[in-house]
Amino acid sequence: MLLGLTVVWTVMIWNLTFAHLYKGDSHEVQTAKDPGREQPKPVEGKAAFQKQILDSEKTVKLYLGYQVLEQKQLLGHFHIVDIQLKPDTRNYCISCHGDIPHDKFKDLRAFGNMHASFIACQTCHIRLEGDQATHIFKWYDRATGQIVPSPVKDGALPGTYNAKIIPFERVDGALQRIDSQARIDFAAEYRKQEQSLSEVQKSKAKKIIHQQVSKQPYMCESCHVQQGSLLPFEELGYSKQRIDAFVGTEVIGMIKNYTQFYLPHILEPGIGSHEPEKKVQ
């Protein structure tokens, strides 16, 4: 044992003395805090992937005095963003598309992403018709995936719901949630086997997964209307006050102005020449 200790100590001292000669400057250079300044260079290769993707996420420690907050570094962030929502593990759309998926349409993307934090993708992107439509929506917990009572009713503040709204469909007369286990398993299987599938198989699988997705998602006015809203707000646990807030003039008025004065094509994104507005600084 003494021999072992001696060897360990000798190696350590050797390294201390000479390591800097053959390892070069071993002081870790911590790169600047501002990743946004670097545009991704179109360099290929595994090393580039390692550097630009795997190593690019930096965490930042914020000493708040009473708490030490470690969060992923956000570009140019001044406000302390302490997102305490647990990641959504049940939703299989997110496993490919991510949970901030809206990106293409400048006018809509931030709003879409905003709603995505408490409304599941399927709610807006799948129009249930005829027999299948049930107008039944429930909340499911982000972490466990189980149906839970309404977080709104439980008094959670807006922006802190750890649950999402999911529609229910009617299949063979029975009610089932639209993100059924069968569909989840199918998608998971696809992801697992994607490497070994042929082009035809991949195409087929993707078509099956996206079978239900409608070409045209529900837009703002499907829910934000006084009468005939898509979502049953009372059943979802919203108080009268809250319902008034989001079907009131504030929101509906904003939507109307939005669509009529600034962006007439908002209801038909992608159709017609939709020129992107000048980029915001």
Binding site: T6, W9, T10, I13, W14, L16, T17
Partner: peptide
Amino acid sequence: VLACLAIM
């Protein structure tokens, strides 16, 4: 370093 290594 020298002394330590020498001893060891």
